[in-house]
Simulated assay, not measured.
Amino acid sequence: MRPAPPNRYRGRFAPSPTGELHLGSLMAALGSWLLARRAGGEWLVRIEDLDPPREVPGASDLQLAALRSFGLQPDGEVVRQGRRGALYQDALDRLLASGAAFRCHCSRSDLADTGGIHRSCVGSGTRPVPAVRLRVPDRCEVGFVDALRGRQVQRVDREVGDFVLRRADGLWAYQLAVVVDDADQAVTDVVRGADLLDSTPRQILLQRALALPTPNYAHLPLVCTPDGRKLSKSGDAVPVDPADPLPALRAAWATLGQPGEAIASCTDTTTLLQTALRHFDPDRIPAPESASIPATVPTSPRCTTAL
């Protein structure tokens, strides 16, 4: 693993290829891009294609094309997790060798009485390919300071338990892959949606177990429908339209709590992004868990599958 270069900000946007970009994912991309550029740093894009059964064919190419249309160009090559299994296997082997991880034959039904929280193996049978879990110590409390939300604390043993690193179906778990990739890509600042806030303590535990650096974290508010549902889980999560990028960029800017008048006169994406960067104020990002979806967001007619 490469250590993070000192005093060099590296951020990233990491969508899963389960559909085209909608307003929530565009806001996350724009927010992470603005924070990286404001710090004079780099901005990377990584495709998190770890779960083939959930992927939509061609979605990652549409996502990347949309980012280009919105003027959000990554620095360097786009990384795809589906091609990085050797890195994950190496990390898993290290965790197993150290005793930090263990093989587990428990099924979901075996853990039903504990709400899915694993503290000891209770399965009566064996699986052809067991899952692999991280061993979470008793009374394991992990805290960190979120750049937008302040101090966060989680009792990982009680709220999560021993969590999966490789699934029983052989697929890599998100928690392991994201930790390995952030370290390998020398990511210093992770900016993402608040739906991943409770994953952060697990990732910090993994970083410690693998002797990897812990990046800074900032969790953006979720974009929600007027009735409070997360946009990506609702029928309102239709894709934004790359053929008409300015209205969608203005909507994403607004959901970040930034003043609309600052970019109102911009007539192309380059000018809008340059102007937005000059006026961007992270202190304006909404503190609550969610931001409201603007009344009108131009959408693409091609697909209605949400990320």
Rank of each mutant, 00 (worst) to 15 (best):
S107M: 00
R103S: 14
R83G: 00
G99L: 05
H105L: 11
D113F: 05
S69H: 08
L111E: 14
Q73S: 06
E77Y: 11
G71C: 04
Q81F: 05
A86M: 04
D110F: 09
H105A: 14
A97S: 14
C106H: 02
R80F: 15
C104V: 04
L96E: 00
L95F: 02
D90W: 13
G76C: 07
V79F: 14
A86R: 12
A101M: 08
C106A: 04
L111R: 00
L111P: 01
S109V: 00
F102K: 03
G76K: 10
A91D: 07
H105E: 10
S107D: 06
Q81A: 15
D93C: 06
D93T: 08
L92A: 12
G99A: 10
R84K: 09
R94Y: 03
E77P: 05
L92C: 14
G85F: 08
D93Q: 11
L72I: 15
L96G: 02
F70H: 06
A97V: 15
Q73Y: 07
R108S: 01
Q81S: 08
R108W: 01
G82Q: 02
D75V: 04
P74I: 10
L87G: 00
Y88W: 01
S98A: 13
D113W: 07
V79N: 05
F70T: 09
S69E: 08
D93K: 10
E77W: 08
R108G: 01
A112S: 13
G76P: 07
G76M: 11
P74W: 10
G85E: 13
L72N: 08
Q89S: 12
A101P: 02
R108H: 04
S109P: 13
R94E: 09
F102E: 09
Q81P: 08
D113Y: 05
R94S: 09
R94K: 06
G85L: 02
L92V: 13
A112Y: 12
D113G: 00
S98T: 11
G85T: 11
D110V: 10
A91L: 12
R84G: 06
R94N: 05
L92M: 12
A101C: 05
E77H: 09
Q81K: 04
A91M: 11
L96S: 00
D110L: 11
C104G: 08
V78F: 13
G71K: 01
H105V: 06
A91Q: 04
G71Q: 05
L111T: 12
R80A: 15
L96Q: 02
D90Q: 15
G71N: 02
A91V: 10
F102A: 07
G71Y: 15
